[in-house]
């Protein structure tokens, strides 16, 4: 059956490509390069087609075709802006007319900057500062105080202080301002420097934890790929 044949060909192709890709761990070679370029081409072609299918056709081409026939899916002014902006952006293809597209890339940069600011403030800074309320386990502290377990309440305070110190010193580590000292390296205020030193330890610990996460994710990918190869080898030998 052709579909069976196709799926078997797929498995063999996938196994071969996996094998070649993994061989890069032992060194670069021309066959790996071929696979690399194949990958870049496929990924780009797929991404380009999805951009057309999902965005450009429904957002630009179809509305324009319909407008041509007198049916307006979207407001004419909006449509005109879309067409003009798109046309200006396409001028970037021409070396001589590329500058005409600058206002459009400027628009993208403006939108990008605004989204960055909005995301940073509403998505990162304020939620993270807000999350600091959980640094000290207030409920446990209250219970300990009410029950007269002062040792336990001190433990809550100590734990919270360490966690708060981790956040604060990490933030302080990045303080950039310093005072010039002639030919000596610039110096930050001593308090900032001390806090920054503590912060650097926390930062390194964090980076190590995150690095371990990535390493384990990569190891998992390796296991999945090798398991696939073992499976294919078993299948081929079984036949």
């Amino acid at each position: 059956m052709p579909s069976d044949l196709l799926s078997q060909a797929g498995i063999v192709a996938a196994a071969l490509l996996t094998l070649i890709t993994l061989s890069y761990a032992f060194g670069d070679h021309p066959v790996f390069r071929i696979v690399l370029y194949l990958f870049i081409g496929i990924a780009a072609g797929y991404a380009g087609a999805i951009a057309i299918e999902d965005v450009i056709l429904p957002q630009l081409v179809f509305p324009v075709l319909d407008a041509w026939n007198g049916v307006f899916q979207i407001a004419p002014a909006d449509l005109i802006v879309r067409v003009v902006l798109s046309a200006l952006l396409l001028l970037k293809l021409s070396p001589r007319a590329a500058n005409l597209g600058n206002p459009v890339t400027a628009l993208l940069a403006g939108v990008g900057a605004a989204l960055a600011i909005g995301g940073a403030v509403q998505g990162t800074i304020l939620p993270q500062v807000g999350a600091a309320v959980t640094t000290f386990n207030a409920a446990q502290f209250d219970l300990a105080m009410q029950g007269g377990h002062y040792g336990e309440s001190i433990q809550v305070v100590v734990e919270g202080t360490i966690l708060l110190l981790a956040t604060v010193s990490t933030l302080a580590y990045f303080h950039f301002g310093a005072t010039a000292r002639g030919s000596q390296p610039p110096l930050r205020p001593i308090v900032v420097d001390g806090l920054a030193w503590v912060g650097s330890i926390f930062i390194v610990i964090t980076l190590a934890t995150l690095f371990a996460g990535v390493l384990l994710a990569a190891l998992s990918a390796l296991i999945e790929r090798l398991s696939f190869l073992v499976g294919v080898a078993n299948m081929l030998m079984g036949q």
Binding site: A13, T21, L38, A43, A217
Partner: peptide, 13 residues
């Protein structure tokens, strides 16, 4: 069969 094996393979590397 082509894109995914290469991409996960690169992650494995």
């Amino acid at each position: 069969n082509l894109q995914l094996p290469i991409e996960t393979g690169l992650m494995a590397v």
